[in-house]
Design a binder for these strands. Structure first.
Lengths: 218, 218
DNA sequence: TATTAAAATTAGGTTAGTCTAAATTATTGT
DNA sequence: ACAATAATTTAGACTAACCTAATTTTAATA
């Protein structure tokens, strides 16, 4: 029941690929996510299958088993609690936390995890608006939608961003778009689907279609 | 300049063996400290020597170079700051921190380390009374002595314990001996060198010679 | 249906870190 | 000084994770 750090990272990759889509994760997408060669993935998938953490076949790809899912959700919980800690207690910005949390998520101590949760006031969402599973593995659910799906003229609140890379987050910082900001969708351009939004103080900015798809609002 | 976790652990072992004694650390003592086979140590010492982190020869054993010392002190700093964090902020007892700190000390983030230091108020000693190197690598120095070296009748304060194992620390907890406790040395028994000390509230306890050697007072 | 392209796997190799067993080198007591 | 003992090193092998190159399998298309 004890996973290596590498195994944890594979399961996380399979989890995140499985979430945002159709069936399971295929060999190639996992390889890409972990920045390794597809050939290297095969072996590990076999191992994870033997250990009963995933179901795997060529047709459906890799999918987490119940046991695999449980372990992975715990890793996700750790990752997101640590990110919250870094922002709330250690003066990190949301664009700085990911890399460090990738390390911290592998620390093994249930007591530390529980104390962290308590210290932070049992948060439900991390600094990017991603849901934090509770100690039982339950995730809060929201009905957030990506910005391009919002009707023109509606006033909405940013609740989640679907890309935690420093480059994207720093771009949002520059545009003065942050979690819980209120904004109004003014126009969607026909030719490139870019979105014009009004921020507080009447300031208006254009967001590319690519960027706007990653901004979830309510 | 980037060390693997294993390399960091070797350097820490060499450091701690070099501190409490004569010349350098020999093959066998390192193996014992790391709970591995002496034959496995040889290779790594060669590697660390090649990378200029240690000087090594059969006569003098392994000694850290300036560069090796610098890196090791940083690891020690991290370990002790994390231990302090766990006790001060996360409700850990001094007998619970070591194992988790062994994991946390390998986290790589200068910002996190500095913020940790700041959050804790730049502590000079960890929960076992061990000195915490500052950001420049400087260690506070104390003139603490082991309990058996104290004259009968003197009133002293516990400032450090030289064994961080849970078993020893829990034993001290049972005896109600903790950091900063005031105690009076009443007697040293001839036949087994055990020490009789008076705690606050006039309570008296016997400490074996083994135990008393590990308790440092001022 | 046969060919081509894409995806997955196999084969063989590498590095870090470990092991056991055997061989070598030092140390030490008489 | 020399045998016994202790410490170290070498040799050879293992596992986890990765790689590249070649091959096989599956899917897509003319």
């Amino acid at each position: 029941m004890v996973l290596t750090i590498t195994e944890e990272n594979y399961l996380k990759a399979i989890f995140s690929l499985g979430c945002s889509g159709e069936g399971g994760a295929n060999n190639q997408s996992i390889a890409e996510k972990l920045s390794i060669n597809p050939a290297s993935v095969t072996d590990m998938l076999r191992r994870l299958h033997e250990k009963k953490f995933i179901d795997y076949n060529r047709a459906d790809g890799a999918k987490l088993t119940k046991e695999g899912l449980k372990l992975t959700i715990k890793t996700v919980r750790k990752h997101r609690l640590w990110e919250t800690f870094l922002v709330e207690k250690m003066n990190f910005s949301w664009s700085e936390v990911h890399e460090v949390a990738e390390q911290l998520e592998h620390i093994q101590s249930d007591k530390l995890l529980n104390e962290l949760d308590k210290m932070l006031g049992y948060p439900k969402f991390d600094p990017h608006g991603d849901p934090i599973p509770d100690a039982q593995g339950k995730m809060p659910i929201t009905k957030a939608k990506p910005l391009p799906d919002i009707e023109i003229g509606r006033k909405v609140r940013v609740v989640n961003v679907a890309d935690n890379s420093p480059s994207f987050l720093k771009y949002l910082d520059k545009q003065e778009i942050g979690l819980n900001n209120i904004l109004v969708v003014k126009e969607i351009q026909d030719f490139d689907k870019s979105v014009l939004v009004e921020l507080k103080g009447k300031k208006e900015v254009f967001l590319s279609h690519e960027a706007s798809k990653k901004i979830f609002v309510e």
